[in-house]
Design a protein around this nucleic acid. Structure first.
Lengths: 248, 248
DNA sequence: CGTTGGGTTGAACCCACTCAATACGCGTGG
DNA sequence: CCACGCGTATTGAGTGGGTTCAACCCAACG
């Protein structure tokens, strides 16, 4: 069995997912391709896959690219509630009510595979493992959301940014992409919204991490970030928990 | 069709659930009873239904009482990530990994119905509507978690407490219980943890709400709370969004 | 009684926010 | 080519909401 090497510390809470993530992603895409009729669709940065209130009919799986989900309140508040990478499903929130409960927006050019929910259920009836994949994906989504809550409530602003970068790098690795140098597809405003802080705080946190050698900016633009050692970010999060002074 | 009256403002984001919640709960319990072998279990306040890391084998449905789910990080951080009432499912987070990802703890005496996950799947194959109930429950869980994120990131401490009370009262109504006077089953510490603030802030927020006549404490103890008008709480949340001075 | 756990309240502090100025990157058009 | 505008990012100074630290109240209980 070809298990991808996972260089980062395995002790981290958000790392409960099985180490064989690339295999899982491949199985998901293959399973869909083999048993359900799928419709492929290319989206570009800023395009919406679906919007809050749209009639629910399809589930979607990210085949390439990056997506964010936005929760919109009736009063205008909006909140980035999830980031989604290759192999992730989109649209679960629509099953219960028959309407999507959030917006799904592409962060750059990418492809999604869409399947009709009823067709998927029919396929699951014929081919049971497909249902297992579906349930596992929903289960992971729930766990992931809870980990977000945990980080949001228990970490300082700096640590949340560090944890965000670690999460992104982790996701890159699971997609089989290199994660020592990542290009954030989000503006500081989006990151700040996702992490519950302001643009300025995000910026300050990033410069502090750069000062501490935990990350480095590349020559071109400040949206590319070098992460020499992903596990060092996790260590930073741990350190910042203790009331002992970390790095200035 | 007997649709329960929902007195509260329908404009609120967390109110996406179909209005026929009592019917949904009844259907869930009936569906389980009719098609799967269930094992009933009584728990008392503080008892754990399952713990983080336990082998996953069962899903559980609350039949009576109140439960909280606790996310535990390896480093000791713990976070209340969910509250669960009659008809709610517990244990979804265990499907993906084969181990529960959090603790489920009873907030007072209550009964849960447990079903083996594999038995449930088999029953779903025989009786399709059961699968619909399961997926709807998972879908609602995801939506609910996202609403928590939204509140946590976009509301002030006072508004979060108000929103918490509104949510609890809402849940009581959906269970068919009276919601003009609720007994919080949680200590200030638990509430604070759930809402991402300290005990003192929770206490201050409650006294402020009481000063503003939005809630009132009963004669006995400060854990019983009268809510004369639930929709007034939602209105308070809305008001506190605008930078205009609310109530002192 | 004394003790213990939960709750409230006050005072001082501090992290993160607001406000504001500046700098950067990039496309457009002169 | 530079000028210009615009969105984005960074940095500084000042403020404030929420925290920390502390004292105190109260009810339950041995």
């Amino acid at each position: 069995m070809l298990t991808a090497t996972m260089p980062t510390a395995a002790a981290h809470p958000a790392l409960r997912a099985p180490a064989a993530a690339p295999q899982r992603i491949a199985d998901t895409l293959q399973g869909l391709q083999d048993h359900v009729e799928i419709s492929r669709r290319i989206l570009h940065a800023g395009d919406s896959l679906y919007r809050t209130g749209d009639n629910f009919g399809c589930l979607h799986v990210v085949h390439s690219g990056f997506f964010k989900t936005l929760n919109l309140a009736a009063d205008g508040r909006e909140q980035v509630v999830g980031l989604h990478f290759k192999g992730d499903w989109l649209g679960f929130d629509g099953i219960a009510t028959g309407r999507y409960g959030c917006d799904a927006v592409a962060l750059d050019t990418g492809e999604v595979w869409s399947v009709r929910y009823d067709a998927l259920l029919a396929a699951c009836a014929r081919h049971a493992p497909l249902l297992g994949l579906l349930h596992a994906a929903m289960s992971r989504e729930i766990s992931r959301d809870r980990d977000s809550l945990l980080s949001l409530c228990t970490l300082s602003a700096d640590a949340r940014v560090a944890d965000f970068l670690r999460y992104w790098a982790e996701a890159m690795a699971q997609c089989g992409l290199r994660n020592d140098q990542i290009t954030l597809r989000m503006t500081r405003a989006e990151i700040g919204n996702y992490l519950g802080m302001t643009v300025e705080t995000v910026s300050r946190a990033l410069t502090k991490l750069a000062r501490g050698q935990l990350i480095a900016f590349t020559e071109r633009g400040r949206r590319d970030i070098c992460i020499p050692d992903v596990s060092a970010l996790a260590a930073y999060v741990q350190r910042s928990l203790a009331p002992s002074p970390v790095l200035q």
